[in-house]
Computed example of a mutant assay.
Amino acid sequence: MVRGRNRWWLVAVVAGIPALALIWLVTAVLRAATSDDPLGRGPREVPCAEAPEFGGARLPTGAYDTRCTVEVWLDTRYAAAFRMPRAELAGSAAPVRARRRGPGSAWATRPTCA
């Protein structure tokens, strides 16, 4: 038996680990350079019952053409877009207008320091 011939696998392992790391690094750089969302965490479609429920609301009954998305990373962000008839919009916005405070109210003025 020739000395050193039975240790070829050790050389292959030692050379293979940096080669695999280099392949991974090149792949990650190419993916980041060619993608708008390299980590795959961009907005994704969700059921429209889930999106407003996250904020404690619900879609209006006459809503149509709904499109809801979620983005999750450090924070969770839901977005809901929909259409509804103008007549129903006027009725659903009235309670919001009634709760809104006008100029000079506690919400609209800056606190004064004594």
Rank of each mutant, 00 (worst) to 15 (best):
M1Y: 10
M1R: 13
M1H: 13
M1G: 14
M1V: 13
V2P: 13
V2W: 11
V2Q: 14
R3S: 13
G4D: 11
R5V: 11
N6S: 13
R7T: 09
R7L: 10
V13Q: 06
A15G: 08
I17G: 03
P18S: 02
P18T: 05
P18K: 05
A19G: 04
L20A: 15
L22S: 10
L22V: 13
I23T: 09
I23G: 01
W24A: 11
V26R: 02
T27A: 15
T27D: 15
A28V: 15
A28W: 15
A28L: 15
A28F: 14
V29C: 10
L30E: 15
L30I: 08
A32V: 11
A33L: 05
T34E: 00
T34W: 11
D36A: 07
D36Y: 01
D37I: 01
P38I: 00
G40Q: 04
G42I: 04
E45N: 08
V46S: 02
C48S: 08
A51I: 00
P52G: 12
P52A: 01
E53F: 07
E53S: 13
E53Q: 14
F54Q: 03
F54G: 02
F54E: 04
G55L: 10
G56H: 07
A57M: 06
A57G: 13
R58V: 04
R58C: 00
R58F: 00
P60C: 08
G62R: 02
A63L: 10
D65P: 03
T66M: 12
T66P: 00
R67L: 10
R67Q: 11
C68Q: 00
V70H: 00
E71P: 01
E71L: 01
V72A: 07
V72C: 01
V72F: 03
W73H: 08
L74K: 09
L74T: 09
L74G: 08
D75L: 05
R77K: 10
Y78K: 01
A79P: 01
A80M: 00
A80F: 00
R83F: 05
M84P: 01
M84W: 03
P85H: 05
E88T: 05
L89D: 04
A90R: 06
G91F: 03
G91M: 05
S92L: 13
S92M: 09
S92A: 12
A93C: 02
V96H: 05
V96Y: 07
R97E: 09
R97I: 08
R97L: 14
A98P: 01
R99E: 07
R101K: 11
G102L: 07
G102D: 06
G102F: 05
P103N: 05
G104N: 01
W107K: 03
W107E: 08
A108H: 12
T109D: 09
T109K: 11
P111T: 10
T112L: 15
C113V: 15
A114D: 14
A114I: 11
